[in-house]
Design a protein around this nucleic acid. Structure first.
Length: 909
RNA sequence: GCCCGGAUGGCGGAACUGGCAGACGCGCUAGCUUCAGGAGCUAGUGGCCUCACGGUCGUGGAGGUUCGAGUCCUCUUCCGGGCACCA
């Protein structure tokens, strides 16, 4: 008799697993594969129970699949580049590599302490040249395909990170994803972009493939982020200034032409400027009362310069004379740079003094500049249809622009009385609110009377025929800016030569190594730029003096394809062997936090499609199933080092053992939900494991001597991982015939065991209700205790078998204890050689069932009958029950509803 | 504003396709054991009424479908998350 000593047991089995290379895997096309993966951690600070939960969930999946006979790939690695390492290095006067490697060592030690079943030979670290050279290789391939380009543009700058951020890294409407209290600033910087937009349509469309296997909210967030809008582009010609004074007219069209920048997409040499607008509601175009440009639209400056001094127009619809407009424009351009709360800001704008021609009805509409029109979205220009759009309504009402109605509600009814009258089609009546839904076109020329959808269709067609527009789909998604002005990342493999311009580093010169000893200042200039040895190189083309690109890549590049590297982690000829990736991919199960719903998970999908087009892989999507686990919280907020509310994983392992820690995180809440850490509750898991240990310990002695116990295993199984042993139920596994039980007690216990096995198996397969699986096992253990002393009425082989089932069911969750119990139960081979047990339906079957009897839908009693009893038998028995009979009270039975083995409802009236 | 989730005892949470609501655990109460504490074992534990048998209410709220609703439908409140002058 001994006590459960997790620390001893855990060390012992971790050693055995390692000696026997239990978790090492190779691609083997003859075996069914299963690739399960937890998102790779950023090694920083301490590994806490939040991390632990993630890995515990992943390990259950890996171990269950292994027991199910799959060839399981379950690797681990480190997202090792990144800002925190650099900042910590500056603070502690060390090197980011030192800091990172120390953390990796620490993380690794704790993960090993928890006995996660990783194939450690496949460990990768993204900060090693053997890894990041392939980031550079991919970059060069994208450069060749035009998927990487450099552009000066307005980008997000985080003053704390001292670097540019991708749009995906800007959260909560303008804050840094790492510094949620820090607003990003807009800066004009030339940087590298990866053309995610080239795959926008595919990234959106393929989400359908993921429906059902990815969480709905992740799909919804990605859809939202990609933001498809189907509509049309329409060209409004800028009207010539026939009302101008003679002097201005004399300068004529040439002046206008030369001053105005060309319209977007204007075909070379097009004489008159035109404004291209994007709309999702071309059907409302007859109601356009203005064209509004973004303040930084390229046409604005030219239009202002040529805009008429028209006192009458100024008085009527504009608020600024010519000079005022220019001042106003500067104001608006400045204020739009600050990423203020744009959504709530008041609509603001001014008339440019020029007019545009609506191509559908040749009407002259004033051209305005508006603060709510974004250059970044669509064409940077809109038509304002105040009667049918909230924002246009607000804007036009403020400036007294007409609000013509061109869509009437389909039914003659609408929400309020006031709108009812207004939406009857008089285009000069003034509505109190815009009608933004689809309806019937009115006052829209030949399109009047059409439904909105039809009108849109026809008008887009006609615009195309007439050469003044076309159908168009646009996306909110923008290209991924990957340049970072920091040290600890992958150098961008590009060289600038005075003679040859931008020259890619040839493949043979990869990797471009990070300089070993940089000057780290954290002050917003890439530290690489200050290293002459790094920067000054010979041009690969002409051999002349040239400079390297001094920026590094966003670390999300590293994590966009790392899971392919696990398939072939030491390949020095290619990022990976396509044959190996073809075997393992797609990832069968990916597990991680919701935080990466659009960052990592969108970039990874993009990368996969690029690799497919490079011929490296054949699949469209890298991740077949995604699971987003909940966070571990303490005091209502997620555990994090910065909040100071972490519970260290190692601390838990020392106090209760790894198995208790694992079990608790699996039991306390379903895996997708957040879990509030409770020191009190973990005691329950600890008690349970002790309870299991004690009862196995008690019966193990006699069980070891059981004849047939060890022999019942398949002797061929030894050293053959492909054909693991499957122990069976001696001696009750007789096929067909009714098993002979020694006693009612024995039969009931075995029945409970197999019922539990059935449910636990089910909970592990897909449903992932680990918490209720554990609850089931607890019930079984309770039943074993209730059957004590088992010696009285339960044969040793049955006792042993029941305890084996408990052990096997616990094995994926508490693997160390399970191995120990397995050994105590007399097994010489490790539990890892054993397969998941099959439940025996015959043994699980109930002889008798208790059926609740309802009278008029209310439970009034229960009757016990043989399983499978028919309606009449149950009904007779129910009527004979005095309690139930009292409720029937001699009333006429109107209806009887009977569900086999479930319930009986007698309806009386 | 739009889009996703949620809401069940004192607490974490069960309840597979509509069929005994509250499994399992925590906490609490009592008994056994112990010098005592702890641990362990056993029993009890949704509210209200009742000495009791039993009754009655009960899954955020209001309606509805059904023999029967935590589960399905309509409306609604609150909480969490994402996106947001997206044309």
């Amino acid at each position: 008799m001994g006590d459960y000593k997790p620390q001893e047991i855990e060390a012992k089995w971790q050693k055995r697993w390692e000696e026997n290379r239990v978790f090492e895997t190779e691609a083997d096309p003859k075996k069914p594969k299963y690739y399960t993966l937890e998102m790779l951690p950023y090694p920083s600070g301490t590994l806490h129970m939040g991390h632990m939960r993630n890995y515990a969930i992943g390990d259950v999946v890996a171990r269950v699949k292994r027991m199910r006979g799959f060839n399981v790939l379950h690797p681990m690695g480190w997202d090792a580049f990144g800002l925190p390492a650099e900042n910590a290095a500056i603070k502690n006067r060390t090197h980011p590599r030192t800091w990172t490697n120390n953390n990796i060592t620490e993380f690794q030690r704790v993960l090993r302490r928890f006995g996660f079943s990783y194939d450690w030979r496949r460990e990768i670290s993204t900060c090693e040249p053997e890894y990041y050279r392939w980031n550079q290789w991919f970059f060069l391939r994208m450069l060749e395909k035009g998927l990487a380009y450099k552009k000066k543009s307005r980008v997000n700058w985080c003053p704390k990170c001292c670097t540019v951020l991708a749009n995906e890294q800007v959260v909560n409407g303008g804050f840094c994803w790492r510094h949620e209290d820090t607003r990003v600033e807009a800066r004009e910087i030339a940087q590298w972009f990866l053309k995610t937009t080239a795959y926008a349509d595919e990234l959106l469309g393929d989400l359908e493939e993921l429906e059902g296997t990815w969480p709905d909210r992740v799909i919804a967030m990605q859809r939202n982020w990609i933001g498809k809008s189907t509509g049309a582009r329409v060209f409004f010609a800028v009207a010539s200034e026939e009302k101008n004074s003679n002097a201005e007219a004399a300068e004529g069209p040439q002046r206008t032409q030369s001053r105005e920048q060309p319209a977007l997409n204007s075909k070379g040499g097009a004489p008159a400027a035109r404004i291209e607008i994007f709309t999702t509601r071309i059907d409302t175009i007859f109601g356009a009362s203005a064209v509004i440009l973004a303040p930084n639209h390229p046409l604005v400056v030219g239009l202002l310069a040529s805009g008429a001094e028209d006192p009458e127009a100024e008085r009527k619809i504009g608020h600024y004379a010519k000079q005022g407009r220019e001042r106003k424009l500067r104001e608006m351009q400045v204020s739009s740079v600050k990423t203020e709360d744009i959504a709530t800001a008041e609509k603001d704008g001014f008339f440019t003094g020029r007019y545009a021609i609506n191509p559908f009805n040749d009407e002259r509409v004033p051209i305005w500049v508006g603060n709510f029109v974004l250059m970044e979205y669509g064409t940077g220009a809109i038509m304002a249809v105040p009667a049918h759009d909230e924002r246009d309504f607000e804007f036009c009402r403020k400036y007294g622009l007409p609000i013509p109605i061109v869509v009437a509600p389909e039914k003659e009814r609408s929400n309020t009385e006031s709108t009812e009258k207004e939406h009857t089609g008089h285009r000069d009546s003034v509505p109190k609110e815009p009608f933004t839904e689809y309806g019937i076109s009115v006052s829209s020329g030949k399109y009047s009377g059409l439904k909105s959808e039809q009108a849109s269709e026809r008008m887009a067609e006609d615009a195309k025929k007439g050469g003044f527009g076309k159908k168009e789909t646009i996306y909110r998604l923008r290209d991924w800016g990957i340049s970072r002005q920091r040290y600890w990342g992958t150098p961008i493999p590009v060289i600038y030569c005075a003679k040859d311009g931008m020259v890619p580093v040839p493949d043979k010169d990869l990797p471009v190594l990070l300089p070993a000893n940089p000057q780290l200042t954290g002050e917003g200039q890439s530290p690489l730029a200050t290293d002459p040895e790094f920067v000054n190189v010979k041009c690969p083309k002409c051999g002349g003096p040239a400079r390297r690109d001094a920026d590094t890549m966003d670390t999300f590049v590293d994590s966009s394809w790392y899971f392919y590297r696990y398939c072939d982690p030491h390949n020095d000829q290619a990022p990976f062997d396509p044959a190996k990736a073809a075997y393992w991919f797609p990832i069968d199960q990916y597990i991680g936090g919701i935080t990466h719903a659009i960052l990592h998970l969108l970039y990874s999908r993009f990368w996969c499609k690029v690799m497919r087009d490079l011929g490296l892989v054949k699949h469209n999507e890298p991740i077949a199933r995604l699971f987003t686990q909940g966070m571990v919280q303490k005091g209502g907020v997620a555990m994090s080092k910065s909040r100071g509310n972490v519970v260290g994983a190692e601390e838990m392992a020392q106090k209760y053992g790894a198995d208790t820690g694992r079990l608790y995180t699996l039991f306390a809440a379903p895996p997708e939900k957040d879990l509030e850490w409770s020191e009190e509750s973990i005691e329950g898991s600890w008690r349970f494991l002790n309870r299991v240990y004690r009862v196995v310990d008690k019966h193990a002695g006699s069980a070891g001597e059981v004849a047939g116990g060890e022999k019942s295993q398949d002797p061929c199984s030894k050293n053959e991982p492909g054909a693991p042993t499957r122990s069976e139920d001696p001696p009750l596994n007789t096929k067909g015939g009714a098993p002979a039980a020694a006693s009612e007690k024995e039969k009931a216990l075995l029945r409970k065991a197999h019922q539990t096995l059935r449910r636990v198996t089910h909970d592990f397969e897909g449903r992932w209700h680990f918490n209720s699986a554990i609850a089931q096992i607890m019930e079984l253990v309770n039943a074993i205790y209730a059957a004590e002393p088992m010696e009285d009425g339960v044969r040793p082989e049955v006792r042993k078998r029941v305890l084996e089932l408990v052990t096997l069911m616990l094995a994926p969750m508490t693997p160390h204890l399970a191995e120990e119990l397995w050994e105590m139960l007399g097994h010489k081979d490790g539990l890892w050689t054993t397969r998941w047990p099959e439940f025996n339906a015959e043994l699980a079957k109930e002889d008798e069932v208790e059926i609740p009897v309802q009278v008029n839908g209310k439970v009034r009693g229960r009757v016990t009958v043989a399983a499978g009893a028919g309606q009449n038998e149950v009904l007779e028995k129910a009527k004979a029950d005095t309690g139930i009979a009292a409720h029937l009270n001699g009333k006429a039975v109107r209806k009887v509803v009977f569900v086999h083995d479930k319930m009986l409802n007698i309806v009386v009236g």
